[in-house]
């Protein structure tokens, strides 16, 4: 339960309420690196602690990077931190995305809202994998164009044309030329060879539920789909009970689950 001190070295504003934070060890102690899909417990002195997924590696050795939306007392306190401030980190916790299974396959990375953060980590690893997938496609939906995070990186990807990036928003503005509507609708636009596709999905639960069903309609087996689930967490050690999802503890048994193993539970409202 003991947090390790880390120093905030960089923050990058992503949207009006979201920013990416990078910290390095403040002392001699340091935690093991996060694999994409795993998470840390991050705390601010005297305010509290919560779970945050890795959003990818940093060139700085031993650094952790989290993209965080300011919504509650803790995340607002994180947003108020100045460079040089010390935070507490614990981890790594949970199971990562099954990136080893993607070698030679077609990979769909499907994100809704801030669900893009753990998939950014997956994307960055896949792009430099020794045993790379055959094809990677990123599908990403946000509430509105100004809520898209990593816009700079998305622009770079689109300029390169590889991997293909499909974006959608619920509420377009006047300048938006992309798609409008929910994320599953993007699937009809992606080139999908069902038998050799693996889909990694992260977003609000309702989005994951409908996305997984739409993937099924395309002929992708439930066992080829992975979802990253979220619940309140106080300990990340399987003690506090908050992250129960039917029979599993998301902190310990997840947060990444093979869809066929959690599907019956994901279909139950307010579980």
């Amino acid at each position: 339960m003991r947090p390790t001190p880390y120093r905030l070295v960089r923050r990058r504003r992503e949207t009006r309420d979201t920013a990416t934070f990078e910290y390095v060890p403040a002392g001699p102690e340091q935690l093991s690196a996060l694999a994409p899909g795993q998470f840390n417990m991050l705390s601010v002195f005297g305010v509290g602690e919560a779970a945050f997924s890795s959003c990818g590696e940093s060139p700085r050795p031993g650094a952790f990077v989290h993209t965080i939306r300011a919504v509650g007392a803790l995340t607002q306190a994180i947003h108020r931190l100045k460079r040089g401030a010390i935070v507490g980190l614990r981890g790594p916790f949970g199971n990562p995305w099954p990136l080893a299974r993607t070698a030679g396959k077609d990979v769909l990375l499907i994100a809704g809202g801030l669900g893009i953060a753990p998939l950014r980590g997956a994307l960055r690893s896949l792009l430099k994998a020794a045993d790379p997938p055959r094809r990677v496609t990123l599908l990403y939906g946000a509430r509105s164009p100004v809520d898209l995070v990593y816009r700079h990186e998305l622009r770079q990807l689109r300029r390169r044309g590889q991997p293909p990036v499909l974006l959608t928003v619920d509420r377009p503005d006047r300048l938006w030329r992309g798609h409008v509507g929910v994320v599953p609708k993007l699937l009809t636009l992606a080139a999908v060879a069902p038998v050799q596709t693996i889909a990694l999905v992260c977003g609000p639960e309702v989005m994951m539920r409908f996305t997984a069903r739409a993937l099924g309609v395309l002929g992708i087996e439930d066992s080829q789909i992975y979802v990253s689930l979220e619940r309140n967490m106080s300990c990340a050690l399987g003690f506090c009970g908050h992250c129960q999802f039917g029979p599993v503890f998301i902190c310990r048994d997840g947060p990444v689950f093979r869809y066929d193993r959690v599907r019956p539970w994901l279909d139950i409202p307010e579980l």
């Binding site: 005297g46 305010v47 509290g48 003690f239 506090c240 908050h242």
Partner: peptide
Amino acid sequence: FCSTVEDVTDLTGNHA
């Protein structure tokens, strides 16, 4: 067995 974790500070803000 469920529990939650709370951080509290003293008035000086130097001890939590």
